[in-house]
Lab assay of single mutants.
Amino acid sequence: VTLFVALYDYEARTEDDLSFHKGEKFQILNSSEGDWWEARSLTTGETGYIPSNYAAPV
Results as ranks from 00 to 15, higher is better:
Val1Met: 13
Val1Phe: 14
Val1Leu: 13
Val1Thr: 13
Val1Ile: 13
Val1His: 13
Thr2Asp: 11
Thr2Ile: 14
Thr2Ser: 11
Thr2Lys: 12
Thr2Glu: 12
Phe4Asp: 01
Phe4Tyr: 15
Phe4Thr: 03
Phe4Glu: 00
Phe4Cys: 08
Phe4Asn: 01
Phe4Gln: 03
Phe4Gly: 04
Val5Glu: 10
Val5Cys: 06
Val5Asn: 02
Val5Lys: 04
Val5Arg: 03
Val5Leu: 07
Val5Gln: 06
Ala6Glu: 00
Ala6Thr: 04
Ala6Gln: 00
Ala6Ser: 04
Ala6Ile: 03
Leu7Phe: 04
Leu7Glu: 04
Leu7Trp: 04
Leu7Asp: 02
Leu7Cys: 09
Leu7Arg: 03
Tyr8Met: 09
Tyr8Phe: 12
Tyr8Asn: 06
Tyr8His: 08
Tyr8Thr: 06
Tyr8Leu: 08
Tyr8Cys: 11
Asp9Ser: 08
Asp9Arg: 04
Asp9Pro: 06
Asp9Gly: 06
Asp9Leu: 03
Tyr10Gln: 01
Tyr10Leu: 03
Glu11Asp: 10
Glu11Trp: 09
Glu11Lys: 11
Glu11Tyr: 09
Glu11Ala: 10
Ala12His: 05
Ala12Gly: 12
Ala12Asn: 05
Ala12Ile: 01
Ala12Cys: 06
Ala12Thr: 04
Arg13Thr: 13
Arg13Phe: 08
Arg13Asn: 09
Arg13Ala: 11
Arg13Met: 12
Arg13Leu: 11
Arg13Ile: 11
Arg13Gln: 14
Thr14Phe: 15
Thr14Ala: 12
Thr14Arg: 14
Glu15Leu: 11
Glu15Tyr: 09
Glu15Val: 11
Glu15Arg: 10
Glu15Gln: 11
Glu15Asn: 12
Glu15Thr: 12
Asp16Ser: 15
Asp16His: 15
Asp16Val: 13
Asp16Ile: 13
Asp16Lys: 15
Asp16Cys: 15
Asp16Thr: 14
Asp17Val: 14
Asp17Thr: 15
Asp17Trp: 13
Asp17Ser: 14
Asp17Cys: 14
Leu18Thr: 02
Leu18Met: 14
Leu18Pro: 01
Leu18Tyr: 05
Leu18Phe: 10
Leu18His: 03
Leu18Gln: 01
Leu18Val: 04
Leu18Asn: 00
Ser19Pro: 05
Ser19Arg: 04
Ser19Ala: 07
Ser19Phe: 03
Ser19His: 06
Phe20Tyr: 00
Phe20Leu: 05
Phe20Asp: 01
Phe20Gly: 09
Phe20His: 01
His21Tyr: 11
His21Gln: 12
His21Gly: 08
His21Trp: 08
His21Ile: 12
His21Pro: 06
Lys22Asp: 01
Lys22Arg: 10
Lys22Gln: 09
Gly23Leu: 02
Gly23Lys: 00
Gly23Val: 01
Gly23Ile: 02
Gly23Pro: 01
Gly23Trp: 04
Glu24Pro: 00
Glu24His: 07
Glu24Ile: 04
Glu24Phe: 03
Glu24Cys: 04
Glu24Gln: 08
Glu24Ser: 04
Glu24Lys: 01
Glu24Thr: 08
Lys25Leu: 15
Lys25Glu: 09
Lys25Asn: 07
Lys25Thr: 12
Phe26Ala: 00
Phe26His: 00
Phe26Lys: 00
Phe26Thr: 00
Phe26Asp: 00
Phe26Glu: 00
Phe26Ile: 06
Phe26Pro: 00
Phe26Val: 02
Phe26Gln: 00
Phe26Arg: 00
Phe26Cys: 04
Gln27Asn: 07
Gln27Val: 15
Gln27Ile: 15
Gln27Trp: 15
Gln27Arg: 07
Gln27Ser: 08
Gln27Gly: 02
Gln27Leu: 15
Gln27Thr: 10
Gln27Cys: 09
Gln27Phe: 14
Gln27Met: 13
Ile28Ser: 00
Ile28Leu: 07
Ile28Met: 06
Ile28His: 00
Ile28Asp: 00
Ile28Val: 09
Leu29Lys: 06
Leu29Tyr: 07
Asn30Ser: 11
Asn30Val: 08
Asn30Phe: 08
Asn30Tyr: 07
Asn30Cys: 11
Asn30Glu: 08
Asn30Ala: 09
Asn30Asp: 13
Ser31Lys: 14
Ser31Ala: 14
Ser31Pro: 12
Ser31Met: 15
Ser31Tyr: 13
Ser32Met: 13
Ser32Phe: 10
Ser32Ile: 12
Ser32Glu: 11
Ser32Lys: 11
Glu33Trp: 11
Glu33His: 14
Glu33Leu: 14
Glu33Asn: 15
Glu33Pro: 11
Glu33Thr: 12
Glu33Phe: 12
Glu33Lys: 14
Glu33Asp: 15
Gly34Thr: 12
Gly34Leu: 11
Gly34Pro: 14
Gly34Gln: 11
Gly34Val: 11
Gly34Tyr: 09
Asp35Val: 09
Asp35Thr: 09
Asp35His: 09
Asp35Pro: 10
Asp35Ala: 10
Asp35Glu: 12
Trp36Arg: 15
Trp36Glu: 04
Trp36Tyr: 12
Trp36Ser: 06
Trp36Asn: 05
Trp37His: 03
Trp37Glu: 01
Trp37Leu: 12
Trp37Met: 08
Trp37Asp: 01
Trp37Asn: 01
Trp37Arg: 02
Trp37Lys: 02
Glu38Thr: 11
Glu38Phe: 15
Glu38Ile: 15
Glu38Pro: 05
Glu38Gly: 03
Glu38Val: 15
Glu38Leu: 15
Glu38Lys: 11
Glu38Ser: 07
Ala39Gln: 00
Ala39Pro: 00
Ala39Tyr: 02
Ala39Gly: 05
Ala39His: 00
Ala39Lys: 00
Ala39Thr: 04
Ala39Ile: 06
Ala39Glu: 02
Arg40Gly: 02
Arg40Lys: 14
Arg40Pro: 03
Arg40Val: 14
Arg40Met: 14
Ser41Glu: 03
Ser41Val: 07
Ser41Phe: 04
Ser41Leu: 10
Ser41Asn: 14
Ser41Thr: 04
Ser41Asp: 04
Ser41Lys: 14
Leu42Cys: 15
Leu42Lys: 03
Leu42Asp: 04
Leu42Ser: 04
Leu42Gln: 07
Leu42Ile: 10
Leu42Phe: 07
Leu42Asn: 04
Thr43Glu: 15
Thr43Gln: 09
Thr44Gly: 02
Thr44Ser: 10
Thr44Pro: 00
Thr44Met: 01
Thr44Ile: 01
Thr44Lys: 03
Thr44Asn: 06
Gly45Arg: 03
Gly45Ile: 05
Gly45Pro: 00
Gly45Met: 07
Gly45Phe: 08
Gly45Asp: 05
Gly45Cys: 09
Gly45His: 06
Gly45Ser: 05
Gly45Thr: 03
Glu46Pro: 01
Glu46His: 12
Glu46Met: 14
Glu46Val: 11
Glu46Arg: 14
Glu46Lys: 15
Glu46Ala: 13
Glu46Ser: 10
Thr47Asp: 04
Thr47Trp: 09
Thr47Val: 15
Thr47Asn: 05
Thr47Lys: 10
Thr47Phe: 08
Thr47Met: 09
Gly48Leu: 03
Gly48His: 02
Gly48Gln: 00
Tyr49Ile: 09
Tyr49Asp: 01
Tyr49Met: 15
Tyr49Trp: 14
Tyr49Pro: 01
Tyr49Ala: 05
Tyr49Glu: 01
Ile50Thr: 00
Ile50Gln: 00
Ile50Ala: 00
Ile50Pro: 01
Ile50Met: 04
Ile50Phe: 04
Ile50Glu: 00
Ile50Arg: 01
Pro51Arg: 06
Pro51Cys: 09
Pro51Phe: 06
Pro51Thr: 02
Pro51Asn: 09
Pro51Gln: 05
Pro51Ala: 03
Ser52Gly: 08
Ser52Val: 09
Ser52Gln: 07
Ser52Asn: 06
Ser52Thr: 07
Ser52Asp: 03
Ser52Phe: 09
Asn53Pro: 06
Asn53Ile: 09
Asn53Cys: 15
Asn53Tyr: 12
Asn53Gly: 14
Asn53Met: 11
Asn53Trp: 15
Tyr54Gly: 08
Tyr54Ala: 15
Ala55Gly: 06
Ala55Glu: 02
Ala55Ile: 15
Ala55His: 04
Ala56Arg: 08
Ala56Cys: 09
Ala56Tyr: 09
Ala56Met: 11
Ala56Pro: 03
Ala56Asn: 06
Ala56Val: 14
Ala56Glu: 11
Ala56Ile: 12
Pro57Asp: 04
Pro57Gly: 05
Pro57Tyr: 06
Pro57Trp: 06
Pro57Cys: 06
Pro57Val: 08
Val58Arg: 01
Val58Pro: 05
Val58His: 08
Val58Leu: 13
Val58Trp: 13
Val58Gln: 08
Val58Thr: 08
Val58Ala: 10
Val58Ile: 13
